[in-house]
């Protein structure tokens, strides 16, 4: 098996590196690719399905995914999907929903009510049967993923259920919250723009 480390690589580098590794195989064999985001998993899965390679993927830890492609076997994505430990992202089948929390309050009007509504929204979000793939937090919303936030446990519950929680690093820095982030990862504007551009649906309460 050839191992490809595509952690930190932006689209389409993980796909390019994996294609090169498959070319190196020169015949039947497997390639394992490590990536740090779900979009890369989807892109790799799509590529494998197009080429007819067997593919399986799993989340190793938040921000770390393994995609294994096997060349020389028919695609077995459907049988793999039944294995509980494997998370198979069937490319276009799964809707890529991104929730954007851009303020610590929901709606405009009373801040007291808006704070209660936002708290209620994040709670209701983690009770849904279908969860978003990503929650982006920026500007006033960045405080929701930090120490002292009433939504912290709900965001942790979302993360535990496989939702990517990304908070704007510029915003954490501006509000002096950099050391207080308690859930998910820090992100930058390129990733925020990319997540929003690649989303099928953006939910902004």
């Amino acid at each position: 098996m050839i191992h490809v480390n595509a952690m930190g690589d932006a689209c389409p580098i993980p796909v390019v590196k994996t294609k090169n590794a498959i070319a190196q195989l020169g015949g039947p064999g497997s390639v394992e690719t490590l990536v740090d985001n779900e979009i890369a998993v989807q892109n790799l899965t799509k590529m494998a399905n197009q080429k007819g390679y067997a593919v399986r993927s799993e989340k190793l830890e938040p921000g770390k995914f393994r995609v294994v492609m096997t060349v020389g076997e028919p695609a077995e994505a459907e049988t793999v999907a039944e294995e509980e430990a494997c998370l198979v992202v069937p490319g276009s089948k799964q809707k890529n929903t991104v929730v954007v929390l851009s303020a610590s309050t929901m709606g405009t009007g009373s801040d007291e009510l808006g704070t209660a509504l936002m708290k209620g929204f994040v709670y209701a979000l983690c009770q849904q049967d279908t969860l978003p793939s990503t929650v982006l937090l920026y500007n006033g919303g960045a405080a929701l993923s930090c120490e002292g936030s009433a939504s912290l446990e709900d965001l942790k519950s979302l993360e535990a259920q496989g939702v990517e929680i990304l908070t704007c690093g510029t915003c954490l820095n501006y509000y002096g919250l950099t050391e207080k982030l308690r859930v998910g990862q820090v992100t930058n504007m390129y990733a925020i723009a990319e997540k929003m551009m690649l989303a099928d649906c953006i939910v902004r309460p």
């Binding site: 007291e112 009510l113 209660a116 708290k119 209620g120 929204f121 709670y123 209701a124 009433a150």
Partner: peptide, 22 residues
């Protein structure tokens, strides 16, 4: 709604268990 918000403030102040939900 205001009564529910008051309940939250009361519970936080008196360290009572629970949380606000919709």
């Amino acid at each position: 709604t205001t009564a529910a918000i008051r309940m939250e403030a009361f519970c936080l102040e008196h360290n009572l268990p629970g949380r606000m939900i919709p």
